[in-house]
Write a protein that binds this DNA or RNA. Structure first.
Length: 112
RNA sequence: CGAGUAAAUCAGGCAGUUGCGGGCAAAACACGAAAGUGUUUGUCCGAGGAAAGUCCGGGCUCCACAGAGCAAGAAUAACGGCUAACGGCCGCCGGGGGCGACCCUAGGGAUAGUGCAACAGAAAUAAACCGCCACUUUGUGGUAAGGAUGGAAAGGCGAGGUAAGAGCUCACCGGAGUUGGGGAGACCCAACUGCCAUGUAAACCCUAUUCGGAGCAACACCGUGGAAGACUAAUUUGCCUGCUCGGCAAGUCUUAGGAGGUGGCGCUGAGCUGUUGCGGUAACGCACAGCCAAGAUAGAUAACUGCCAAAUACAGAACCCGGCUUAUAGAUUUAGUCGCUUU
RNA sequence: CGAGGUGUAGCGCAGUUUGGUAGCGCACUUCGUUCGGGACGAAGGGGCCGCAGGUUCGAAUCCUGUCACCUCGA
């Protein structure tokens, strides 16, 4: 299994929101942008709009579970930011998985 | 059987596959001079009754004072107890509600002072508008029985009494004071005196008690770069400058400390468990036995499937404890009460 | 962790200090004016004052609890 790092700095989130490519579905928003390293870095955003701590934690878990399925197939050298939406906490992880796979194929970051 | 009251408990479980955080152990591998770090393997542990709101009380840390008092501000308010402490809890008294089990109650002081009481009403803290009675009758005096108002109208009600009336007098009730008795106390009971000017202090205020301030982003340690100060005695290098002196920088030492990191931080602690024993009505205390049980740092409990009638509530530790308040699907247990029926 | 503020008509706000009538502007309805519309003029409707208790004769106002939103500091 490949390693991936998490994004912690606010300016990289801001760069992804402003200059990255975005893909939207009802339960997930994905931003993809190249970074200048050889690593794959991901960030998960769960805002206060989604709910309280239980809902936000569940969104993070679902997104992380879906991502761990896809992580070995992703080309390194990208920052990927996932944003949870209001519906995310009521949805199963398989739906997130299909949405995420669709987004990442559109972004051309999946290996064949 | 129905209705209702009080108290307590649980907060999905099991199985399979994939996966996450921490402790411990041993070996192997990788990196490293070493300390050690990472990976793999084994094993153990891994959110709540409210973890929530942040409304009180403490521990802990730093600052202030190292003498207490006054003032200011805030909180609390019958009485007795429990507790480390509390504005919490238990018991009990007074008041209110319910047929009852039981429930609710910020419940000190209004002759220490100040303020306020709209409208209505003759009059609102002080009384004569109407009425009633008397007389020297277009007025004067007596009178609070009766009168529409109002939250509140000068203790209530009945009898006596009177010119008419009035606690003016008496019985009962209410309230106040004194005495006696009971109780740990709030308070309760009885007798006597005898009718004493409304309400509001969750208006200002008075009385009693308590409180130094700030908070784990506290605080302690390390601290690339950079900052400030000192030393240049000896030696070396560079620059001003070709040489000497001098200065600056490098150098050495000291100080404070931003980013970042480590500790604080889960540790024997006001600890948890107990069909246990003793004391107490109870809160709780003492003894005994057993146990050591999350500790992350963008933040660990998840995903998928099957079965159990159904799996669905509120909801995620972030320094730690004791309470309070609020949210909460469903299920279970115990003890009283009322009504109906049967024996 | 700490400090503060705001909830009143469909919208934006007064009134809360010092308790007694809930008001202003825009919007809405009707009528007038105009050939018609706008503007203008006149009249009118619409509120359990965030929620629940309490104090008081009486609460938007005072007290307690609670909910939602907003702002600030470390």
């Amino acid at each position: 299994m490949r390693d991936y790092l998490t994004i912690k700095e606010n300016f990289r989130f801001q760069r992804a929101y402003k200059r990255g490519k975005s893909y939207v579905s009802p339960a997930l928003v994905t931003y993809v942008i190249r970074n200048n390293t050889n690593n794959l870095q991901i960030g998960i955003t769960t805002s206060k709009k989604i709910g309280k701590a239980v809902q936000r934690n569940r969104c993070r878990r679902i997104i992380r579970a879906a991502f761990s399925e896809l992580a070995p197939q992703i080309i390194s050298g990208y920052d990927v930011v996932f944003v949870a939406r209001a519906k995310t906490s009521y949805v199963k992880s398989t739906e997130i998985l299909s949405a995420m796979k669709n987004h990442l194929q559109q972004a051309n970051v999946l290996q064949n």
